[in-house]
Design a protein around this nucleic acid. Sequence first.
DNA 1: CTCCAGAGTTCCATATTATGGAACCTAACT
DNA 2: AGTTAGGTTCCATAATATGGAACTCTGGAG
Lengths: 257, 257
Amino acid sequence: MTPQTGTQAIDRAARLLTLVVQSEEPRSFTSLAEDSDLAKSTTSRLLQALERHHLVRRDRDGAYRPGPLFTGYAARHDPVDDLVQVAEPTLQRMGDAVGETVNLSVPRGETVVQVAQVDSTYRLSATNWLDVDTPPHCSALGKVFYAYGTLPLPTGRLERRTGRTLTSRTALERDLAQVVRRGFAVTHEELEPGLSAIAAPVRHRDGAVIAAVSVSGPTTRIEERIDELSRLLVAETKRLSAALGYRPGKARKDGAA
Amino acid sequence: MTPQTGTQAIDRAARLLTLVVQSEEPRSFTSLAEDSDLAKSTTSRLLQALERHHLVRRDRDGAYRPGPLFTGYAARHDPVDDLVQVAEPTLQRMGDAVGETVNLSVPRGETVVQVAQVDSTYRLSATNWLDVDTPPHCSALGKVFYAYGTLPLPTGRLERRTGRTLTSRTALERDLAQVVRRGFAVTHEELEPGLSAIAAPVRHRDGAVIAAVSVSGPTTRIEERIDELSRLLVAETKRLSAALGYRPGKARKDGAA
DNA sequence: CTCCAGAGTTCCATATTATGGAACCTAACT
DNA sequence: AGTTAGGTTCCATAATATGGAACTCTGGAG
């Protein structure tokens, strides 16, 4: 299944390429040679081959950056599709661990769109579901986007869905402040009786909140496990954010095996 | 400068990788082996190495698709940055050819943002200039976005900037219909006396107009060369659209309700 | 159930290919 | 003119990739 042999040159070239693509800063020749433990001559030959094939390019300082094959790919693709790809393992893992519905959503316009979901049968389904019937202030996902300023706060009045819906602006703002403090949002039957959810932000390289992940299910099941669920949710969204290039503080990255 | 030697394995692997990344459809093992003229055994070994390094992945049908290194890169990057990278050669070439200012713009919110520019000194400069002072209906770029429905038509009244500004909705709509018919937009001193411009759309893989390129300069110089300039502009924007994956003819559009 | 074809993987003797130390180049400093 | 840092080229060597053939697996068709 895995011939680790007969591919030394490719293994080395791939290692160099990964170094270039993964690091956000352009890499110098020397730093690449050191980090990959290759002789200068070998590094030079491999990088030249990669450059010839448009996998890397050199900027005017001579530093290596991802090449036209990467920029072209990125320009051709909807970043949301790629977010879904990257998030898939996270969602799958969470679905397996908690046995509840897990959702990945992004903001669009003034509202929230679900872009992937793992339901309680553990099956991943890619959705593109603009849920017009869920006002953001009633959903955990929406609260995350409000709390971190990704969606502008609603200007009209706050529709009441259940007895627990937050309908006053001060109540909502107090809740949003708590979201930021805790790092995740909670809704207890604010959209629908019997339904609860928690959600946490996914951050991008520049720190912007670009998506959110939620776990939702019957209030009884969610409430009794809320500590466990929120810990898992926050851990997984942090990990996903890291995969997207977000570095809280200054973190050094090493070979994530 | 270019040792074409000592890198056979990498050259071959890069060829395979390029085939996978460039084709929008997933590629089967056999089609890759044929198109690259490699023995089955070699193809197998190389693809396994690429897969091990996350450069390609196999979907559940066994077909090869771009791997996590590509999707991860795309998810981490602003697609506009990558658009600028891809468009750079186009803009440079046009600037050299026409000796006038060339602009690349994208829509944002309700207006137009310039993201790259080659001025008449032929120097490329990356800008990120939200030109609040240019209402889209007075600019060739804005007209392109209106004409192809990328920007919603303005709801308020149309501000008059010069004697030639189109201020009536019917005049504007007639002009926009002509833009679609001709394939490019023209403004003759509608923003500022003495200034003229032409602009054409850049299309994305799914056919959506995601950007526009303009050539602008003094009315005297623009008007006398308008045939030449528009031919070049349309040819170059078509080429750029093709580089972004647009295939005129098969206008595929997925119903994303 | 058996046979066949298509798709892909593994094996292994061979020689072609990648390797890396040393020499070399070229700016940028001093 | 001298030095260093960053990078490229050379070339004898042996380690590496190669590809034909054998093999496995899967899904029909008879």
